[in-house]
Amino acid sequence: MTDHNIGVDISKSHLDVFRLEDGAAQRFDNSTTGFRALTKWLGNASVARVVFEPTGAYHKAFEVALGGVLPLVKVNPLQARRFAQAYGTRAKTDAVDARMLARMGVAFDLEPQAPQSKNIRVLRDLHVARAGLIKDQTRLRNRAQTQDMSVLKRQTKARLTLVERQIAELDVEISALIAAQENTTRTCDILRSMPGIGAVSAAAMLTLMPELGTLDRKQVASLAGLAPITRQSGQWQGKSFIGSGRKPLRDALYMPALVALRWNPDLKEKYNRLRAAGKPAKVAIVAVMRNLIEIANALIKANRKWTPKAA
């Protein structure tokens, strides 16, 4: 039997679907009814992969409804566009994008991703909401320092109190969700055993990288966007830099790395060694962040807590 490769371009109201093997194309509603119609259209055919791009809130229902039914592959929109351009396709329509996604899946032999649990999806939504409230809190605190009118000070204080209460409510909800399952509780216990990782940072790491414990060192560093990208051509040697990956995870690792510089002797030694070698402080901190996520991955894989090295 032929394994079919499907490309799906997702918009607010509809799904444009392309089946590579026979060139069949169809449009479905981006709704529960449309998802059922898509499944019926595919029939009993063997599907190798269904490739799609994340489109904000519009792909969420599709991913939740079909994650356990079809082998879904979520790809980076920028990489998908670069693939289409390399293929020689300049046009950009929903139908063209669906066709290019199907071809991209075959060209790179993309592996379907394991569906995320409902618990992790809820934790991610709560984390996004909390991050937004933290930004609001910072903005209100900065505004309060420059205001001199009593009415504005009073309103800013009231808003700040509300935001702080909402953050506390989300922290309680996040802690309850983590404690509701044995595996997430154990993972957070392992993460919190590491110097520099507190309850908030552990929850962020668990939410933003649920793959922890299943990857090797290079994979976890690359997925976090902490692996240096080398630039060189002939005799020219450019500066390496980090990028791509999951920026929210990098943001969540920054403060734990600073704390680890004080309380983790090994990471402190690494930081000092890099600084002594002439590396900028930011480069040395990024190296510590990478070590943190690699250690976390190794500990979770071994199912053991962090312990200091014997003297």
Score class of each variant (00 low, 15 high):
Leu208Ala: 04
Thr146Val: 13
Asn264Leu: 08
Met255Asn: 05
Ile178Leu: 03
Lys92Tyr: 08
Ala61Trp: 12
Gln235Leu: 09
Gln181Pro: 02
Arg304Leu: 08
Gly213Cys: 06
Lys309Leu: 10
Ala287Gly: 04
Leu66Lys: 14
Pro210Ser: 09
Ala144Lys: 15
Ala204Gly: 03
Lys309Pro: 05
Glu211Arg: 13
Leu38Gly: 01
Leu133Ala: 07
Tyr254Asp: 07
Ala287Val: 01
Leu253Arg: 02
Gly196Ile: 03
Gly105Lys: 05
Arg27Pro: 00
Ala257Phe: 02
Phe28Thr: 00
Ala284Cys: 10
Asp97Ser: 12
Val288Asn: 01
Gly198Asp: 07
Arg49Leu: 10
Lys305Asn: 13
Asp136Pro: 06
Leu78Phe: 11
Ile229His: 05
Glu164Asn: 15
Gln166Lys: 12
Thr207Asp: 02
Gln232Asn: 13
Ala302Trp: 07
Ile293Gly: 05
Phe241Trp: 11
Val259Asp: 01
Val283Gly: 01
Gly238Met: 04
Val106Lys: 15
Asp22Ile: 04
Val128Thr: 13
Thr156His: 12
Asn119Glu: 13
Thr39Glu: 14
Gly243Arg: 10
Tyr58Ile: 14
Leu212His: 08
Gly56Asn: 14
Lys282Gln: 15
Glu21Arg: 08
Ser244Gly: 09
Asp94Asn: 06
Ile167Gly: 03
Ser201Val: 02
Leu177Thr: 01
Val259Gln: 01
Thr32Val: 13
Ala276Gly: 14
Ala221Tyr: 03
Leu258Trp: 06
Ile197Lys: 03
Lys301Val: 05
Met255His: 03
Gly56Lys: 13
Thr55Phe: 08
Asn76Tyr: 13
Lys309Tyr: 08
Asp9Arg: 00
Leu140Val: 08
Ala298Val: 08
Met289Val: 07
Ala199Asn: 10
Ala204Lys: 08
Asp22Ala: 04
Ser222Trp: 07
Leu126Asp: 02
Leu274Val: 01
Leu267Asn: 04
Val69Pro: 09
Arg159Lys: 15
Phe241Leu: 14
Ala107Cys: 11
Gly34Arg: 06
Glu63His: 13
Lys135Phe: 05
Ala129Gly: 07
His59Phe: 09
Lys270Asn: 08
Met289Thr: 07
Gly198Arg: 03
Ala221Pro: 04
Asp148Ser: 15
Ser240His: 14
Val128Ser: 11
Ala202Arg: 10
Phe28Asp: 00
Asn119Ala: 15
Ala276Leu: 02
Val75Ile: 14
Gly7Ile: 00
Glu169Val: 10
Lys268His: 12
